[in-house]
Simulated scan of single mutants.
Amino acid sequence: MDADVEADNVEVDTVEVEAPAAAEDAQPTQPSKKSLKKAAKRERFQAQKLERRAREKVAKKEKQRIRAEKRAAGELDEEDLPKKKKPRVGPPFGGRVVVDLGFDEKMTEKEVHSLCSQLAYTYSANRNAGHQFSLLFTGLDGKTLARMDSMSDAGYKRWANSEFWTEGYERLWSEDPTVKPTIVYLTADSDEELTELKPEETYIIGGICDHNRLKRRPTVSALPVLPIGTYLSDLKTRKVLTVNQTFEILVHWVDTRDWESAFHTVIPKRKFEENSKEKAAVPEGTAVVSVEEVEEQTEA
């Protein structure tokens, strides 16, 4: 039988599917004016939110850029310091820390700018300390005074628990003739180490930024050095610290009574990295002398 004949004999059942009848009364609902206003308001808010975040991001980056430039130039003001959550402040330690600013004529303008930034950091560290010192800045004059007056509209005059003298620290002995103060002038060049801080004593920090060019202030009565050599015997790099670093170490010692912890908390990590590099770079048996020793040998 032909295939065409078979195809003719095949019965195909078909099913007709009727389309659903459209609802006679169904009509598209129109949104109310109130809902349209709410939707438009949401869209505007989202658009403004994105724009606001974009502006904030740009402003934050610009602020960071300016702060980085000021930090590189040593021109950070108190207002430029990062805002930290103020910790709970306990009773004052009782001791006094004096920053001797009597080196003004020996510093360049750039060094004075760096020093003034260090003073701002010092005040900030004292303000946030668990047990605050009484701060006294002596010998404020010349370029340093002009720079401090130009920073934040002479904001240093509003520093709490701080005092400024144009006279030198020698005035300490004439404050009260009936009382003989115990004054300790800290230095980076001494064999005597400071072992503890006492609330009845006054500690003087040399306020100078000279990148190790100059000799420190001569002996007052005793010139102990912070005990870095005892607690960080492996740290062979230059141990001359900035004003604020020295002060922060004192603050941490008062809070913890632990010199080693204070040093590790304050001294920059790069100091330890530099020390490791120096050890690797210097061949065994090579004599290593400091800049101070070279200067002394040259003068001799």
Rank of each mutant, 00 (worst) to 15 (best):
A7H: 07
T14V: 14
V15C: 12
Q27S: 14
Q27G: 10
A40Q: 12
A40N: 14
K41V: 08
K41L: 06
E43D: 13
Q46T: 13
R52D: 06
R53V: 07
A54K: 04
A59W: 02
A59M: 08
R67K: 06
E69D: 02
L76F: 04
P91H: 06
G94F: 08
V98T: 05
D104H: 03
E109N: 10
S117D: 02
L119Q: 01
L119S: 00
R127T: 05
Q132R: 09
L136P: 00
T138P: 05
T138M: 00
T138R: 00
L140A: 06
D149F: 05
S150G: 04
S150V: 01
G155C: 07
Y156I: 02
Y169G: 12
T178P: 02
K180S: 11
T182K: 03
V184W: 03
D191V: 09
E193G: 08
P199E: 01
E201V: 07
N212Q: 11
R213V: 10
R213W: 09
R213M: 12
R216C: 14
R217H: 12
R217A: 14
L226G: 12
P227N: 08
L232H: 04
E248V: 05
E248L: 02
I249M: 01
W253A: 04
W253C: 05
T265E: 03
R270P: 01
R270Y: 12
K271A: 15
E273P: 06
V289S: 14
Q297F: 11
T298W: 09
